[in-house]
Write a protein that binds this DNA or RNA. Sequence first.
DNA 1: ACCCAGGCGCATG
DNA 2: CATGCGCATGGG
Length: 233
Amino acid sequence: MDKKILLIYDQLHDFFGPQYWWPMDTAYHTANGSDPRFEIIIGAILTQNTAWSNVEKALHNLKEKQKLTLHSMNNVDIASLKTLIKPSGFFNQKAQRLKHICNFLIEVYQGDLDKLFTMPTDNLRSQLLELNGIGPETADSILLYAGSKPIFVVDAYTKRLCSRIPIDVDASSYDLIQRYFQETLEKQYPRKLLPSIYNEYHAFIVELGKQFCKKQKPLCSDCPLKSLCDFPR
DNA sequence: ACCCAGGCGCATG
DNA sequence: CATGCGCATGGG
């Protein structure tokens, strides 16, 4: 087994500390009366190939107009929705995708997110992937961050990491990378902890990527993983 | 004036 | 199967 996956996690944890991605504290929850899981689902779609700072603007607009709940978003006209989410980019297709998933949640699960996440994870993942605009990363982000399922999220930064550090996995395959991380971490940590481990790990990788693993920046002298990094050769 | 961002669907070879 | 392209905004 490749201990590097575990080593990287420990090093990133020591370096970055806790990340608190998509916090679900009760004050936030009760303050606006909405379900944070729904907001996470929406955020997962809005952040597709988009900087999170732009997504925050869109989420702010939605919240301000009280459209960040399942039924209010389902009822708002698409033109208004496009205007509200404009800062997050690709607003034409994203507005359509949001409408689509709202309809799915209402028609298939009667708008009940508890029922949604009671579904066996594999079945739910397949169902999400059938929806237009939901690919593997978005589906897995929803399962992990909204549903607290033990699913490791792979993104462009994860693939870049795997291609720059000699790890015995095909860095171009989403499924293989995901399986490799999950199989390694499953053996190390108790089941109950896996969702939070995957949560933190993915956040670490994104933070690492943003700060030290840019496309155009081969020199990363301050990178916490520089001792493992094989880039640029 | 570039380059990039927590992708995805669709069209080609 | 595997690349390539359009989608769009805002920050560095």
